[in-house]
Design a protein around this nucleic acid. Structure first.
Lengths: 329, 329
DNA sequence: AGCCGGAGATAAACCGGTTTAGCTAGGGTC
DNA sequence: GACCCTAGCTAAACCGGTTTATCTCCGGCT
């Protein structure tokens, strides 16, 4: 009942272990006749190579890694990551080694361990920090990596990204065209690189724009919205850094009797079922395709391709019911 | 720059490889003085055992597996699975090996391979089928497994579950108490065990209940709803098998000018941000906690505990704006 | 004194592959 | 015929651990 090993095949085919290895991997050193005989025996025995054993002698681990640094409880609501993961899977034939940790130190430790133990062939890097130690680390380890969602070029690493700067500008232009002047922004975590990009794009296209920090949870979105709407001169439009906060914001507006979109326009970053149903104007990114593209890039890098930057298509603003002309006066 | 191996420690401490192994694993066979010396050397060298190598000689693989059989594209919208995964992670110190495949055959093949190669220490089984081959397979392989979300006892396997039958009954009772008589149901995949459970609970508490099949996607929810509302005597209440279909159904109702809840009551299975915001009455399960419980159970089974059934708390019906008294007449 | 037992350590086999060094036989060259 | 080269294969080392068999030394018992 035990699964056959390379030794069993060697015995059955009457050759040595080494010859079997060469034959199975399509390498030279064995004759065609021997090769086909070995392949025949292998398939008739239902042989499957052990990735574990193979990884031990420095070959493929048949898995790629992804570490998420988030409080697990909040993570479950973020459709973004699951969409991303689903997209990655669609383009990979190997498994994804996933772990959620609570600190950046653990994350780095984990990447090092996984690589040292050949548990992964490469990794995805998400949630890039402003000055991210991982960017230096990966090349020094020799660990194939792809930066997902960073903005632009990152050291020697391949990267798949969307232009957050241009996207934010397009959102603001949309709102300005509708007559909005007092535009606010509920940002994501300040330590993340894309938050900074969006901040700077926002700052340079909006005069006197108010920015309130959030952390992607519904609670923070609600709190920020309450703060903004309670101001002496409340904004007439708010741009949120993710869908969960935007939806929470819309609810707070409804609670306070602020009509959307006639009194307040709302725009969400990251489209999702949530926005579709909430009829929220959203910046749609096709996260699934984004994940698929990241996976293709990683597969290429693992295969030895020289790292390239793949810019994803510019996110598209899907205008729904939550954004409209600014109130007069 | 290479990470230290057990051999390096042996050399540095002046003992044999075997002694180091014994010392590090807290097993008898070495003196206390030797043990502490070895531990000292190990920590000063920053030693980390290689899981890969360890797995090769039949020990822990430091990972558990989860295979999902779904079209990847649809998967991304199902918050349920991501909540579940997040919950699992919160209770596990090891990594999760995740792969999405497109057929049951591949799934089984994958489980066998992972186990044969010691890539995982145990697996979660989700989406249980009516007569599921995996239930026989796991014990015969000796692969520790926990059934997640099946209903009740499954052969020799440990299982974490919620009582779908009782839950469905409570939903129907809620609707009946509101005066509803023509109650319909938009079911999930007919091949899944919990669909059958809910079907039978539904059938036995509703007279002449109409059931339309869906597949958890928004499209199928919309289609089913259109079909139901187009009937000669349309139902006054619809119970959906997940949140995505329920939300889609609510939208179709709005489109057709059917008022919710005055003309039509809607109840969703699986609460989520989506339901919260859509103000849908939903059967809330705390999927995160469910995943955490499943992880605890799997850890216990891997640790050698005898498999037990853990019944999850009965899902709670959260009544929001989408369900109300049946229209008179 | 002689025997037994156990603690403490080591060497070596093993897990399932890959890889390298080395051996053999056959063909070509001068 | 002596020499060299190469294709084709084998044996063995190696990856980094675990586990088993074995060996030594020391103390206690009769």
């Amino acid at each position: 009942m035990k699964r056959p090993t390379i030794k069993d095949i060697a015995a059955a085919a009457g050759v040595s272990k080494g010859a079997v290895s060469l034959a199975l991997n399509g390498r030279s050193g064995v004759s065609e006749s021997t090769r086909s005989r070995v392949l025949g025996v292998a398939s008739s025995l239902g042989y499957r190579p052990s990735v574990t054993a193979r990884a031990l002698s420095s070959a493929s681990a048949d898995a790629v890694g992804l570490v998420l640094v988030r409080p697990p409880r909040a993570l479950g609501d973020e459709a973004f990551f699951f969409q991303l993961i689903a997209g990655m899977q669609s383009e990979m034939s190997c498994a994804l080694l996933l772990q959620v940790v609570s600190s950046r130190e653990e994350e780095i430790e984990l990447y090092q361990r996984w690589w040292a133990e050949h548990r992964v062939d490469g990794v995805f890097l998400v949630d890039l920090l402003v000055s991210d130690p991982r960017i230096e680390l990966m090349p020094s380890l020799g660990l194939p990596a792809v930066v997902v969602g960073g903005a632009g070029h990152h050291g020697e690493l391949a990267s798949v990204w969307a232009d957050d700067y241009a996207a934010m500008t397009s959102v603001v232009e949309h709102l300005k065209a509708l007559g909005h002047r007092r535009i606010a922004r509920v940002a994501g975590l300040a330590s993340l690189l894309h938050t900074v990009r969006r901040d700077s794009a926002f700052a340079s296209s909006v005069v006197d724009g108010v920015v309130v920090a959030g952390d992607y949870t519904a609670e923070s979105g609600a709190r920020a919205t309450r703060e903004l709407l309670g101001m002496a001169e409340p904004p007439t439009a708010i741009v949120y850094d993710n869908d969960v906060m935007a939806v929470a914001g819309a609810e707070v507006a409804a609670e306070l009797g602020v009509a959307v979109p006639s009194e307040l326009s709302i725009v969400a970053w990251d489209d999702s079922v949530l926005c579709q149903h909430g009829r929220l104007t959203a910046l749609s990114r096709d996260t699934f395709a984004f994940g698929a593209r990241a996976a293709r890039a990683l597969v290429a890098v693992i295969g030895g391709a020289s790292p390239t930057d793949v810019e994803d298509v510019l996110p598209e603003l899907v205008v729904r019911g939550s954004s409209g002309p600014a109130p007069v006066g």
